[in-house]
Design a protein around this nucleic acid. Structure first.
Lengths: 239, 239
DNA sequence: GCAATTATTCGCCCGATGATACCAAAGTCA
DNA sequence: TGACTTTGGTATCATCGGGCGAATAATTGC
């Protein structure tokens, strides 16, 4: 079988079956995007051994861990298998293994979170789909925990990493950006303060284009273009 | 051999040798304390197989991963084997496995960070010692990476978790607390501002005791006693 | 007592944040 | 055409928190 002709689904299945003896851990990816104004995670069909009865129909995309490979490389490959292209953001969330089941036999799973811009489409042959994180189908407890941790991880990183910009197209309106921040942080933000802070941080620049959304004044489009080095943190937080 | 008579070192050695076939991953603990005004990590003597030549003499305390156990339980046991008592703080840092060596044969290590109050002593039979994180002996690259990540993790958590208070005795002066924050954050803090924020957060309370350090006015002793629920975060950070 | 040292607090200033209101540019509808 | 609505973008003001220097307090050593 030529690798050039193999579909992502076939590649993934081949790699999985090539390791009948589990390496001791799996690499699982929580692939997040924005769908219909909600955070959504990619799930694929659970593939059990012939004759095995699965209690769950869906699972996070994953791969058995390889001894001689960097974890991030495996996670990137898993993401590529699902979406056809590499993720715009990839970060490790942590290791999960507290006695809960996994679709594979791995006692330990290393979770990654990957971000895909809103509007990206999953190739049909992937056999997967996006589900809102607030309305997930039945999942193994460990996988549910990994999704929850991935969302919490993104929420904590949103102020220190360009998380939001990886979930948006290359150009966007400031209202879209603010709505995304409100979605991620789960709280309302003040419009004037949001734009003031954004301007002070100098991480977006305006383009020459405007977008008219039907009613109301057209909005100027911006792009992510950080021009400022990180300012030293000020003050102390006790929480 | 009765478990009641076994020293921590013997218990750890027994457990390690009980898994000749590696479980696929290890649980490593970065045990931090404050020693001579510096952050210090606990290291133990590296134990190789007979005849095997070790390039490093020291290693992080660790254990092979067990399939049927929670990761945090293993990390707590490792900490207890080193210090004799459980840690005052324990949190997972992440999984490390990017092709670097480990004293065991595990291709993957799950790192935890544990905090021990300044002044705590390591039992003599542990065979370990504390080393300043800025002046570590030769270590395997993966272990060095885990220590660096653990320190960075603590620095990021210091404003959101009672990290500093787990590195201090139960009572302390405000100057000691500020010096610890300056050590952790690696920057100077203004005394009046520090105390003002501390009072606003309502996480310490004064005791009836004062401590005289020789010269100068005696300092009042405080204890950690959070009385305030977390205030909702304000504003936006773009960094 | 007086200087030195350390602890604790006060007052001033500035920047960030939030509330409210205002202006601008488009569509809708009579 | 002209009011009204809708959405984008800005201005003004009050408030709050934090940075800064200085004043005050309590002890040791001379």
């Amino acid at each position: 079988m030529s690798p050039l002709l193999a579909s992502p689904r076939q590649r993934a299945a081949t790699r999985r079956s090539a390791s009948p003896r589990t390496a001791g851990y799996s690499v699982d990816v929580v692939l997040l995007t924005v769908l219909d104004g909600q955070l959504a995670a990619a799930l694929v069909r659970a593939e059990g051994r012939p004759g095995e009865r699965l209690r769950e129909r869906w699972t996070l995309p994953w791969e058995p861990g390889a001894a001689d490979e960097a974890l991030a490389d495996a996670a990137e490959r898993v993401s590529r298998d699902v979406m056809g292209v590499g993720p715009h953001y990839l970060e490790q969330v942590g290791a999960f293994g507290d006695g809960k089941r996994h679709p594979g036999t791995a006692p330990l799973s290393v979770a990654f979170v990957a971000l895909v811009p809103a509007g990206a489409v999953m190739p049909a042959d992937t056999g997967g789909d996006f589900f809102p994180v607030n309305d997930l189908p039945a999942l193994a407890p460990r996988q549910r925990a990994m999704i929850d941790a991935a969302v919490a991880h993104v929420q904590q990183r949103v102020g220190h990493a360009p998380v939001a910009f990886r979930l948006l197209p290359t150009t966007f309106t400031l209202s879209e950006l603010q709505e995304l921040y409100e979605l991620l942080l789960d709280r309302r933000l003040h419009k004037a303060s949001f734009r003031r802070s954004l301007q002070a941080a100098r991480i977006v620049e305006p383009t020459d284009e405007w977008r008219s959304e039907g009613r109301g004044r057209p909005a100027q489009l911006f792009r992510y273009a950080p021009r400022r080095r990180r300012s030293a943190p000020r003050g102390i937080r006790f929480e």
